[in-house]
């Protein structure tokens, strides 16, 4: 494995525009799902991406894996710019980066056996064939806590939690260095969520995987991740070590998000809920995208987009807020 210095995955100034589908002659204004996102995932590190619907967290995951090309900016994987790679080399690189999806029902081909789908990656990259592949599939199924005999079954014979384990096994089949998990537990019941979160945590410790864990649930992220990135309307609001952010959230949005998340621990409302709803992504506010709902907004917030900068007094945290100085922990 080459080991270029620096993070394993780095996204620089990523933007992504979507064109709404119009008629033959009509093209709507592009919708910006990502607006200049910088992100880095180190080897073996778990980074959580948190935000409400429309914040661009899923788009970010797909852009980092180049399942979707960015409109602007670049993605470096192990020092190599993914956009510059010839198709064959990009396919070879894909062995090292995998994905686990949200919907355990849509992420498996309903017409092929579980074993065949787990073996796909090995065949594509020539890692194992024939009985070797069969043994590897059995080992993977065991690793994710399933019966190796299940390889011959079709996806519909499994429950949601089991399918998500199968999806994890498929992602592991190419022995990747980096996995993007896009809301892998949101569609599962609470009792099953914990199983899958624990599985991911174990695998990470065991295999030294780097993980980008996308979620709308702050609590799940806290359990699994070293670092957290909080996004809102396509921009990063705040970033830092998970422990610090949960103990002392700085950005007004992070604070509101934490306060709004229902909890067994602090009963009673933790301050007034955030007013209004996430504005339409097609027509975001000028300046700071959060200002329309922010309790601390000033006229200046509408003027310029606050850059994301290291937080005063906490070098390992970054924040995008004009009033960052007043927010320091």
């Amino acid at each position: 494995m080459s080991a270029a210095p620096g993070p394993l995955v780095r996204g620089e100034g990523l933007t992504r525009a979507f064109h709404r589908r119009g008629g033959l002659f009509h093209r709507g204004a592009p919708v910006m799902a990502l607006r200049g996102v910088d992100i880095a995932v180190n080897r073996g590190e778990a980074v959580g991406v948190v935000g409400e619907s429309g914040c661009g967290k899923s788009t970010l995951g797909r852009v980092l894996l180049r399942l979707m090309p960015p409109t602007g900016g670049r993605v470096l994987f192990d020092g190599e710019d993914l956009a510059q790679q010839p198709a064959a080399h990009l396919r070879a690189l894909r062995r090292r980066m995998q994905m686990v999806f949200q919907d355990p029902f849509g992420s498996l081909d309903p017409r092929r056996t579980v074993g065949a789908q787990i073996a796909d990656g090995m065949q594509i990259h020539g890692l194992a064939h024939g009985s070797g592949a069969r043994d590897a599939v059995a080992a993977l199924l065991k690793q994710v806590g399933l019966d190796p005999d299940h390889a011959r079954r079709l996806p519909h014979e499994f429950s949601g939690g089991q399918r998500q384990r199968i999806a994890v096994a498929r992602a592991l089949s190419t022995r990747p260095d980096f996995i993007v998990a896009d809301e892998p537990v949101s569609a599962l019941d609470v009792s099953i969520q914990a199983q899958v979160v624990n599985l991911l945590a174990d695998l990470r410790a065991e295999l030294g995987l780097a993980l980008l864990f996308i979620s709308h649930d702050l609590h799940v992220v806290r359990h699994l991740c070293d670092r957290v990135v909080v996004m809102y309307l396509g921009r990063v609001m705040e970033e830092g070590p998970a422990r610090d952010i949960f103990r002392a959230p700085a950005h007004p949005y992070t604070r509101a998000l934490l306060a709004a998340t229902p909890s067994l621990r602090h009963r009673g409302t933790a301050g007034a809920p955030l007013a209004g709803e996430v504005p339409s992504i097609a027509n975001p506010p000028s300046g700071c995208v959060f200002r329309t709902r922010c309790t601390m907004a000033q006229p200046a917030c509408a003027e310029a987009v606050p850059p994301i900068e290291p937080m005063p007094g906490a070098a390992d945290r970054r924040i995008a807020c004009l009033r960052a100085a007043e927010l320091s922990p």
């Binding site: 797909r62 894996l65 399942l67 990009l90 396919r91 070879a92 690189l93 894909r94 062995r95 980066m97 995998q98 994905m99 999806f101 949200q102 919907d103 849509g106 992420s107 498996l108 081909d109 092929r112 789908q117 796909d120 990656g121 594509i124 990259h125 999806a167 498929r170 089949s173 190419t174």
Partner: peptide, 21 residues
Amino acid sequence: LDYVTAQEALGARTRRILART
């Protein structure tokens, strides 16, 4: 659908994705 994207993420060639999945 995610399972088609998954094939792409695995690094499958377009031909394989079209024919098999």
